[in-house]
Nucleic acid binder design. Sequence first.
DNA 1: CTATTCTTTGCAACTGACTGTCATCTGGCG
DNA 2: CGCCAGATGACAGTCAGTTGCAAAGAATAG
Lengths: 143, 143
Amino acid sequence: MKRQATRRLDYEKELRRRGVRITRPRRIILGILSETEDHPDALEIFRRAVAIDSSISLSTVYRTMKLLGDMGAIHRHAFEGGPSRFEHASGDHHDHLIDIESGDVIEFKSDRIEQLQNEIAHALGYDIVHHRLELYGRKRGTG
Amino acid sequence: MKRQATRRLDYEKELRRRGVRITRPRRIILGILSETEDHPDALEIFRRAVAIDSSISLSTVYRTMKLLGDMGAIHRHAFEGGPSRFEHASGDHHDHLIDIESGDVIEFKSDRIEQLQNEIAHALGYDIVHHRLELYGRKRGTG
DNA sequence: CTATTCTTTGCAACTGACTGTCATCTGGCG
DNA sequence: CGCCAGATGACAGTCAGTTGCAAAGAATAG
């Protein structure tokens, strides 16, 4: 449970190392990102940020998400039919199963699939730069 | 090469069956969709349609793509960082490898991956409604 | 073939999700 | 503290797509 505080400090250290200033809005957004285990969108992050400091603007949230995304500190996911949703980039790679009823996101990982993807790309003469694998499903016995 | 004309007629028959009127703009768009083997976006379809009948509007293209998509006659793909691109829904399911340099789309199919996806979703208590698997890559020996 | 009906169209205004501009503000060093 | 490049809030602009509406045009009836 101390993981979160550590993660925020890691973010700040990394930002400093890159000559990025740690401002009040950024510290608040970093705090929100490091505490959440879900996949909030920009508006949701904005709402949570405003609850802490009402002067924060939505532009700053978007700018900060872009900055952190470019740095590789967070991942942006453009799931179907909605705004981008974010998660911190710590931990290793995984893909997502999206509950089409609730919007909940479940993370999973399959080395077999990754391996098959590489084989396929290779056979087609390509190197994979990145990929997107999303399963959209419904809880069994719920419809 | 007669496949395309047949496909357009199939589209029209299906539309009629659903009580949808076959208008001039729709016939033109259907013709474009049945002739192309690539994955054009709405604007590209619009450009091709205007070359045939300059009075067609972009709204009608969007509306027709939505109609055909809802009917399941075409598939809409929202690849990263660009507008939706479309392809006719004939033939069987496949996934896509996108050349990040040229935007070219290569179709591929892997029963092994599909099977693994189902196993994963099942293990998590879900039934897959649909999925999205996109590989973004670069041609080997090109960079 | 014409009248009637109800869908579809083109246009323009609108929306959601960002991105860019700019005057003002501020973090961090000196 | 004082400075000042980089960051911020406010808001205009963009991009892809959607929607409201009056006019046009399919399909059907007569």
